[in-house]
Design a protein around this nucleic acid. Sequence first.
DNA 1: TCAATAGTGTCTCTAAGACACTATAAG
DNA 2: CTTATAGTGTCTTAGAGACACTATTGA
Lengths: 230, 230
Amino acid sequence: MRHKDHIDSVLFSVDPVIFSLVDGVLCVLLVKRTVEPYANQWSIPGGRVDKAVCKNLLDGAIIKLKEKTGLTQPYLEQVCTDGGPDMDPRGWSVSSVYMALVRHEDIVLENTNAGALTSWISVREALDLPLAFWHAQFIEAAYQRLRDKLLYTDLPIDLMPTTFTLATLRKAFEAIILQPLHRQSFAKRMLDAGILIDTGEKEIAGSRPAAKYRRANIPKPYFFPRALVL
Amino acid sequence: MRHKDHIDSVLFSVDPVIFSLVDGVLCVLLVKRTVEPYANQWSIPGGRVDKAVCKNLLDGAIIKLKEKTGLTQPYLEQVCTDGGPDMDPRGWSVSSVYMALVRHEDIVLENTNAGALTSWISVREALDLPLAFWHAQFIEAAYQRLRDKLLYTDLPIDLMPTTFTLATLRKAFEAIILQPLHRQSFAKRMLDAGILIDTGEKEIAGSRPAAKYRRANIPKPYFFPRALVL
DNA sequence: TCAATAGTGTCTCTAAGACACTATAAG
DNA sequence: CTTATAGTGTCTTAGAGACACTATTGA
C-alpha cells in the first residue's frame, strides 16, 4: 500500500545541515546517496526518524546527528520545515531542517552508515552541486540563518576548539560572512562582552604570542546588544 | 489500515497561531473542537493540509488561514515544527506552527467552518486553558517569537489599521510585552527610522489631535539598527 | 635590526533612553 | 483658567567602527 492512499499522512524526515570549518573554509557534511531516488547525488545526511525511539523532533535530530557523526552535544537549532508533493517522488513529503555546528576534527567519517561516501564540501561548492530533494534550498536556508545570527550572536564559537585565539575566532566569522572584519574592533566587541575567559595559555605562531581563550559558562548563544553593521 | 502501519509516514498538520488586538489586549483565535480527540477543548484553528492543492507548506498555511479567517494577505511566519508519538492519540504526528498577525475587525467569524465555536481569547487566558494536542506549547512559542521580534522590528504595525497614531501603535507594542514604553523615545525611534508616512489626517480624542500615519512601502518587517532594552 | 602579529587607548558616530519644555485641543 | 495628550529639543549613555600607537615574538 502506497503512502498516498493515506489521506492524512506524509513522508517525514529530519535533515541536519552540519557545518564545520575545514582549513578555514565553511563546509557542510554531505552524503552521496546509494539508492533511488536521487541515487549517486549528494544529499544532507538526514532521513526518516526512528518513530520507536524519538519522543519529539529534537530527539530525532539529535539521534540523526549521533548516527552520522558520533557527536552528542553539538549546537543544534531548528531552521525551517517545508515539503509538498514534488519534494520526493515517493509521495507527499515534509522535512524539518536543522543546523548543527561541529568541529570536523571530532568526527571520524568511517563511523557513518555502511559504505556511503561522506564528505565535507564547501558551502559554495555544495550550492553549485545538483543536490537530492530540496536539499539545496535547505542548505541555503541554514546558511542564511547562520549568517544572520553571526551578526548578533557568538555562534561561531561552536566551530572552535575549547581554547582558541581571537585571531582564529575572527577568521571563523570571516569564513561565514566572506568578508574581513576590523581586527581591533572585533577583539573589543568580544572582550567587552565578557563571554571569553583568558586561559593564561599562549599560542605561538611566529610572531607575538596570542592569548588563548575559552568560552565563559553562559547560555548559548550569547546575544550582543547590537548587531554588526556590514 | 492504521497510520502506524506505515513505517515512514506521519500525520501532519499546519497550525497557525493567529494574533490580534481586541480592545487593546493581545488575543489568539481559538476553536472549540467538536470531534475526538480532545472534543470540547480549545485548539489552534489548524489541521491537515489539503495535499491535492498545496505545493509547499507556506501554501498550506495561507490556505488554512483563508479558510478560517477569509484573509489573504496577513503577516505570516513559520515559528517551529514539533511532533512525536504522544502529540495525537491517532498516531505519530508532526505539526508546523505559523504565526499570523491580523486585525480582528477584518474577520467575520461566522465565515468559519460549520458551527464550530471560534473565539478571540487573550494570550494570558489561552495559556491557562487546557488546550488540545501540544497547542499550549505552540502558542507559547509563537508568543515568544512575537515578543522577541518586537524588540528589533516593526511587526506590531500588522495589527494596526492602515492609518494609525503613534499612541495606538505604542499601545500595541505595550500589549505584547506587557510593560510601558517611554512615550517620546518610542515616537523618536519610529519617526527617525523613516518607516512611517504622515497622512496629514488627525485623530481627535479629546485633547490635542494626533497625526495619523501609514506604513511606508518597504519590505516587511523593518529591522531597527538596535534592539529595545527592557 | 626588521617584519609580523597581538594588544591598548582614544576618538567619532549612531541611536536608545530620559527629561524638560512647548503646542493644541476640550472643558 | 486647568487638564490631557501631542510633539520638539537636548543631554546622557553604550557600544560599534576606525585609527594610532605600543608590545612581543622570530628571523
